[in-house]
Design a protein around this nucleic acid. Sequence first.
DNA 1: GTTGTGACTAAAATCAATAATAGTCACACG
DNA 2: CGTGTGACTATTATTGATTTTAGTCACAAC
Lengths: 205, 205
Amino acid sequence: MSQIPSSAPASRGPADHNVRDQIVEAAGEHFSHYGYEKTTVSDLAKAIGFSKAYIYKFFDSKQAIGEAICSKTLSAIIAAVEEAVAVASTPTEKFRRMFKTLVSTGVGLFFNDRKLYDIAAYSAGEGWPSARAYCERIRQILMEIVREGRESGEFERKTPLDETVHAIDLVMQPYVNPLLLQYNLDVAEEAPAQLSNLVLRSLAP
Amino acid sequence: MSQIPSSAPASRGPADHNVRDQIVEAAGEHFSHYGYEKTTVSDLAKAIGFSKAYIYKFFDSKQAIGEAICSKTLSAIIAAVEEAVAVASTPTEKFRRMFKTLVSTGVGLFFNDRKLYDIAAYSAGEGWPSARAYCERIRQILMEIVREGRESGEFERKTPLDETVHAIDLVMQPYVNPLLLQYNLDVAEEAPAQLSNLVLRSLAP
DNA sequence: GTTGTGACTAAAATCAATAATAGTCACACG
DNA sequence: CGTGTGACTATTATTGATTTTAGTCACAAC
């Protein structure tokens, strides 16, 4: 119900405004269709029937618009992951589903919405707040799963939680991070299952 | 003493020839100094005092020369790893040292011999035989360590060897593969230790 | 104060003419 | 046979002039 502000100081002018939404919507379509670089700010202005200058009343820069779109894209992945985790009963199963959903959603984006994927990859490479927030959120979900597993006695409790979570995060990074995922597509099919096995073995009490 | 043919059908003409060595030597210096793309085949020809055409009596293409250099570069990493592994006594220690040496040597190459690193990264991206052979060799060393650990009872023996090794290989890949390592430099300091801990926990009997 | 814009500039993308380069081949010399 | 090359071409980089584009600003209308 509540609007998560992500962590983005990426916009200016009124935060809640009809025109802002129109810009985001137009950007979503144009970026998805023609790509970030091929669509000009003037294109977006034309699409919503205003002047280019007016756009800059709502967004600091073209990149800020890109971040908004990127943020939406990555949120969709997060949502898919959260749903997959929610339906699983045990922490073990949660982890498996999390990893698998993360990768398959990412790969799906790569093949079905390549232009949006490219923005996400670029954002990850440049360390945009949208990408940072995404990675951080994944880490939180992971932490929650590990904590739950520890509490239920399903996972070991000897190692420091932060350290363990961080190590698992490192294992998943090549498939979480869109910038890296594209280089690992050849193993993206099998990797989640194989790495889940390895990680879960390492978590055994 | 014996020359390993790597797996490269990358050359032609007499395999053992003084001029071939001269070419490789000149290429090593030029590529390291000016980079692969900035040095022309004519440059190499001039450096050894022959015509460009003569170079093509020994190498199929400029890329083939690049592969030879790349192969040498990657072999140096392998050598460092083999040495590090050799001095360790237990499989656990072997694995730790292997991973650590692999990353630190790779990172060192990145910062000290960037031009050569770039060739290695490119070769990995293009799947050149030199890069394939390198990855394969790493996998072999890893397999040897795991096997030894299993035999000595230090590592578990329930999971299929191939599968386990493959999963560990996936964990190391982002730091082994020069194409990927450059995106992980920010965690390259800590990752080997943290991931070694995780992997070794997963190998516990 | 809010909504909205045309005219402007500095930086970046584009494009076509030009130059450089990878790779071949016929041939020469011993 | 092995050693070696100049002259050639098709493809790829480079350059520099031209056009687009991101982003600003002063100002208008309400």
